[in-house]
Amino acid sequence: MLSAILTKTFYTFISLMVILNYALLLIGSMARIRAKVQGRVGQPVWQPYIDIIKNYGKRTAVTHGVMFYLGPVFRLAGGLGTYLFMPVVYGFVMFENFSFSGDLLLVMYFIFFGQLGMALGAGESGHPYSPLGVSRGLAQMTAFELPFALAVISIVAQYGTLSITEIVAAQQGGWQNWVAFTNPFAMIAGMLAFLGMSMQNPFSVVIAPQEIPIGPPTEMHSAFLGMLQTNRAIFNGAKMVLFMNLFWGGATHKYLLVAILIMVVKTFLIYLYVNIVGASFPRFKTEQSIRFFLGVPTIIGIIAVILQSI
């Protein structure tokens, strides 16, 4: 029993380290790609590491109360929860994490959870811009959850399961079995919702430095900010893995390293798509993004659900 727990702990640690480092490098390389689009050289790929070390290495920090401490903790719990309840690489014990039969619902809840925890922490900081950013973020999130939820409902109806592992298993046997091709409307609704979820342009009004200084984390600094940056990497990685699992057939191969490589390629392309959209379109106002998500993506999501139920 003990050895099973220790083995699971070790596997979880490995899995976490892989996603943390991969996502940090991915964030760094995407920043560099965006810089190339703007005609700049761009920051080094490893810059996110240095920023995190710098923030953890600050000598002073100011607290505003218990919730201010707990805000980044909740945010990190949201990121970890999203990541740890789904398989990263299908078919390997080391990377299946704590996935179980109803994990899809739990993961959807965890995507919300971090934001709500952060809202409480940011609220206690007392800075007027923090709740302003939070209200914008929650409004936008409520809007993109609708097409995302419809896409998920459509997939659940398609395969008759709430388990991410089973959804990935059902997509094996070639690219023609991926949800992206068997249920394209769900894929389109989900991928449009993903744009809002990743908070890049045009849906970056929540944390845009030029709008209201950086939004919810305005007062977060030193180790608080370091923790948020760590979470940003894990949460981004988790969301990309989730979308890869739901729509793009997951990642699997008889060799572990090849399977990880497939995961890397697929998630890289998913993040690249977000960045291409981000580099091409200007920023929406909050009401514009709400109107956008409740328009075409929601209609596509409803079509996806109707097509699966008839």
Partner: peptide, 22 residues
């Protein structure tokens, strides 16, 4: 900040709040 001199390549970037700046 922009393409001519691009301070980001030296690890320098603007930050909108004093709490996070160094």
């Amino acid at each position: 900040m922009t393409s001519r001199f691009d301070m980001y390549q030296y690890g320098i970037q603007p930050r909108p709040t004093p709490r996070q700046s160094s």
